[in-house]
Computed example of a mutant assay.
Amino acid sequence: MDKAAKLLELAKDNFEEGEEVLSYVDGAFQATVKNRNTMRTGVLIATNKKLRFCGKRLFFIYDDVIEYSDIYKVELTKEKFGDTIFIDGKKQSYFMRFIISKEVSNFFNIIKEYKGKRF
């Protein structure tokens, strides 16, 4: 089992009832925590109810949630070392950088389709 598959299984422990994985990408997730930019490696998962980031470092598991209703806009850019997805949210902005997944355009289209929806 590869790292992304292990992280998907860890993330599923926190899923709501009826929540299913639609697509995911792996890379480095950047968000602001306690007024500091943090970058963590892991998977960003698009489910049928929300976006979830799952990453693991030593014995600590990161589980960040972004509600689709909190997303204003999403942008996909191609860069030298992989794709980047920018998510502009109500509370803060997020980046998923250095994405090397082949499913990035499918993942991006799912976010665009679901953004602004309430579940």
Results as ranks from 00 to 15, higher is better:
E17A: 07
F59G: 00
R36W: 02
F95Y: 15
E9C: 03
F15C: 04
D2T: 13
I100T: 11
L51Y: 06
D2I: 13
R57D: 08
F107P: 07
L44A: 02
K91A: 11
L22V: 12
G42I: 02
D26T: 13
D63W: 04
T38N: 03
F59L: 12
G27T: 09
D70E: 14
E103R: 12
G55V: 08
K91Q: 06
A28H: 06
S101E: 09
N14M: 09
F95D: 08
G89W: 09
I110S: 01
I111E: 05
E9Y: 03
L8W: 03
E19Y: 08
L76V: 14
L10T: 12
V104M: 07
I87C: 04
L51Q: 09
I85P: 05
D88M: 07
K78N: 14
Y94K: 00
A46H: 06
L7H: 06
I85A: 03
V21C: 04
I66A: 01
A28F: 12
I71W: 12
F29T: 04
K3P: 00
D2G: 15
F29Y: 12
Q92E: 13
F15E: 06
T38F: 02
T84F: 03
Q92H: 05
V25N: 01
F107V: 10
G116L: 06
E19V: 10
D13T: 12
F60R: 14
D2Q: 11
D13N: 13
K49E: 07
Y62S: 14
E75T: 11
K73V: 08
F107G: 02
K117L: 14
F60D: 07
F86P: 02
A28C: 11
I111R: 08
K90C: 10
N48V: 04
R40H: 08
C54N: 01
R57G: 05
F98D: 05
F86N: 03
R52N: 05
C54Y: 02
A5E: 15
F107Y: 11
G116E: 03
S93N: 14
D26H: 13
K50Y: 09
K80S: 15
T38D: 03
A5L: 14
Q92I: 07
G42D: 00
T77V: 15
I66W: 04
G116T: 07
T84A: 04
E16H: 06
K90Y: 13
E20W: 00
E67P: 04
D64T: 09
I45H: 02
F15V: 05
I85L: 08
A5M: 13
D26A: 09
V65N: 01
K6G: 01
N14T: 09
I71Y: 12
E17N: 06
G18H: 01
D26N: 14
S93F: 08
A4K: 14
V65R: 00
G27E: 04
V21R: 01
K12E: 15
N106I: 15
E79A: 12
G27A: 09
L7C: 06
N106A: 14
E16A: 10
K112N: 15
K73R: 07
E17C: 00
K50N: 12
R36H: 08
L8C: 13
I87F: 03
F60M: 11
K49W: 02
K34P: 00
N37K: 04
S105R: 13
D63I: 10
A11D: 09
G116N: 05
F98Y: 06
D63R: 02
F60I: 13
G116C: 05
E67M: 11
N109R: 10
N14A: 13
